[in-house]
Nucleic acid binder design. Sequence first.
RNA 1: GCCGGGGUGGCGGAACUGGUAGACGCGCCGGAUUCAAAAUCCGGUUUCUGAAAGGAAGUGCGAGUUCGAUUCUCGCUCCCGGCACCA
Length: 816
Amino acid sequence: MDVAYQPELVEKKAREYWDDKRCFEVDEDPDKEKFYCLTMFPYPSGHLHMGHVRVFTISDVIARYQRMQGKHVLQPMGWDAFGMPAENAAIKRGIPPAKWTYQNIADMRGQFDRLGYGYDWRREVTTCKPEYYRWEQWLFTKLFEKGLVYRKNSIVNWDPVDQTVLANEQVIDGRGWRSDALVERREIPQWFMKITAYADELLEHLDKLDGWPDSVKSMQRNWIGRSEGIELSFDVEGEDEPLSVFTTRPDTLMGVTYMAVAAEHPLATKAASVSPDVATFIEECKKMHAAEAEMETMEKRGMPLGISAIHPITGEKVPLWVANFVLMGYGTGAVMAVPGHDYRDWEFAEKHGLPITQVIEPVDGTEIDISKAAYVEYGRVVNSGFIDGMEFQDAFDAIASRFQEEGRGKRTVNYRLRDWGVSRQRYWGTPIPIIYCEDCDAQPVPEDQLPVVLPEDVEVTGVGSPLKDMPEFYEADCPKCGKPARRETDTFDTFVESSWYFSRYASPDCDSAILDEREAYWMPVDQYTGGVEHAILHLMYARFFQKLLRDLGLSAADEPFTNLLTQGMVLKDGAKMSKNKGNTVDPKELIDRYGADTVRLFMMFAAPPEQALEWSDDGVQGASRFLKRFWNAVQAHAAKGEALQLDVSALNNAERDLRRKTHQTIAKVSDDIGRRYTFNTAIAASMELLNAVNKLDSASPQSIAVEREALDAVVLLLSPIVPHICHELWSVLGHDSAPVEHRWPDFDESALEQDTVEIVVQVNGKLRGRISVAADATKDEIAEFALADENVRRFVADQDVRKTIVVPGRLVNIVV
RNA sequence: GCCGGGGUGGCGGAACUGGUAGACGCGCCGGAUUCAAAAUCCGGUUUCUGAAAGGAAGUGCGAGUUCGAUUCUCGCUCCCGGCACCA
């Protein structure tokens, strides 16, 4: 055996072992405890980037660790293969999206294998293949039958030059990214999924997700945005229909000084027909970009409609305005404005000279001045007639009952969450399985005609979808009456594919149903790992789909992911690695140069998984250097020959110390990998142990035995992280088995015991000395020892000791 | 703007339940080895002060709670992620 560490040889050998033994191919075995370990599947861009390496390595470490715990581990991999980049590549280089995508998948799969990830490739799922999206289309038709999908008009970014709908990210400063034309808001009919029907359940089940980070649950809670309020109606002068508004603050009703409706509201449209100014304003609102961030930060503008509503309590006239910050899609598209007690209403009133009145005062009697700023806290109602003096809940109830009795309002729950628009006017996606018939309207494609196959041999120009120019695609017969009809040419949002792929891994080859009985064995996912950027959308849609599958009787699980780990981004020079910024590092080059283990080690060592990771070329070298040291230490040890049986009673102090360190390290690394997911500290602890091994003077037979125990431990503890080198070193240490099939080591409680412990001594909270005391010393004994320390005496001097705090095993604080 | 997260040596980070700030690694400095260099090995490395022992300051900024705060509370600031058609 060549003694120098040669990663290529070592890694090839380990990979061949895993392949030959089919280590990572798993079938359903009801007698074994399963563990489903999953990573958010990648978009096949063609290039493995550092973000991929990071997330897949995290997941692989967890999977390998759980295997060593004796669990039956499934770790699959697949491709989120539909999406815009394929169309962009097609426009730029004239390659059809399908060809480009399949080539990328082939390239990336080779790179994954080189990194030693333990995937069951027999279960590979590729979303752009008809075998996959066929079931997505089937599911959509089932939802259609259940009334969980519907069609309505909604707003898109329209590029008038390219005659194309643009994604938000394709709109730069209000202009199309390719044409540079001013983008317009345009209403077109689109398909929606009723995620709001599940809003309450999506919210309530968050409480069951103990294995999810609080931050993600909190973001989802805020996204759903459940609020209890009252929907009440105001009569409008000269209108038969009253104007309905939703408010969470009925206690401020008497502070209403104006009302505002969205630009798309019928009252605004009506006013526009008589007022050119209003018409112009509404036109300008149409040029607004559709993104929420822009809506919130833009200047709040409005225009009086020239009509008034009647305040339902006072009977006074309240002017009606149209305003650009009122959203048609939220609530009723109209708001009652209380500038005294709402920040946005205040800003708008201030700007347009509308009156601001105070109807709430702080309960604690603090003076407030609503001419300076809105007071938005709950408080006591004033200047409000019959509800004067009430606090929030009483006032809420009083107003609610009164309006309910009068038949002018009711208690309502409102959500910020909107139904999910799934239509995309793009080519490279799953065709929406709908046929439009002049007589029968929209009809779902019958099951026996599925899949609706996306033609792959097309030319993409960037102007509209090629499907619209393909009669062979869009010409169809109505499934109901048989008359010639037109097939839908829109495709699904790619989030639809990623909302159920995790279930399909259980039965990827099933061609008679979307899922089969294997789903029940593997689902839910035990550990899901992916980027924080998916904290809301992807994870919310996936949870929604899981509930849909459950309600269709296809799954028993309420939630798809039991434990969630959200990993931070990979940065270079403080910025996200991206081609635009030219700060990418190609994992392939590094693997060729240092080997996969070095890359895996650096990734896991540089930062804990949830934090952003700053890339460092020097850090990679350090990882490589450590592996060489590790290799050399094991080889040098092996050269000393077989170790004697360890005799714990015959150890000297240094040997006992190393043995304690070994077992402390086993305990720490088990906790770090198994519970905390802090792989960086697990590696640091293993490094410390190896350093301690190298420091031990190991000539005697017992010290070789202690050293053997330590090195065996390091190899097993690091094997989930750097599996190839550990595979080889384990056999160098004389074992017949492989770490991948070995049980995770247990620590020996008795090895952790210590006779004496070091305790620090503080005087007034400042460190003044260290003392060594018997491990079983009493508090009084410890305090006595502390006062005897020379430096401590210097600081205590002749002052009275007012208090002594003793924390056994840690410190003494003497307060003078 | 709103929601969520973060700020600790020259750098990445550690300190897990309020108890030794800076583990581990990188970089740098010194030494060994070498004809020389690379590689490797040994030692040092928060800042200021001091020959040393030691002392003082120190976890984005400002307050507070506590015997004791990187950790808890309040206010501010800067950076990152998300905001519904990027994936």
